[in-house]
Amino acid sequence: MDQHSKGFPISHVIGFFMSLVLTFGAAWVALQTSLSMKAVMWIIGTLAVVQAGIQLYMFMHMNEGEDKVANNINIIYSAFIAVVIVAGSIWVMTSGHSH
């Protein structure tokens, strides 16, 4: 039964609350401020990247792996997927005369 109780998961709770703060912060910036569209986009984009980083460290055990090669492959592949989805979508949806 011992492996079930490793003490209070404080980093998870901190990560959870920071994620909530960042999410509601982004919603507040978008809905309640009168900044320009461009400024809003940059701010919530930055908050999203910060939140992704927090989740990777607090929840995804990114710094716990023993095997450096496997860790590097995982990070490179995830970065590839993220760039393809985000940058690819922006490129496809904003070029041409579709939008």
Partner: peptide, 20 residues
Amino acid sequence: VLSMLVWVHHFFTMGNSAAV
């Protein structure tokens, strides 16, 4: 790897730029 890089061929006719 390539399977993640071909999705737009399902909507070539959407009116993308020539580069896309």
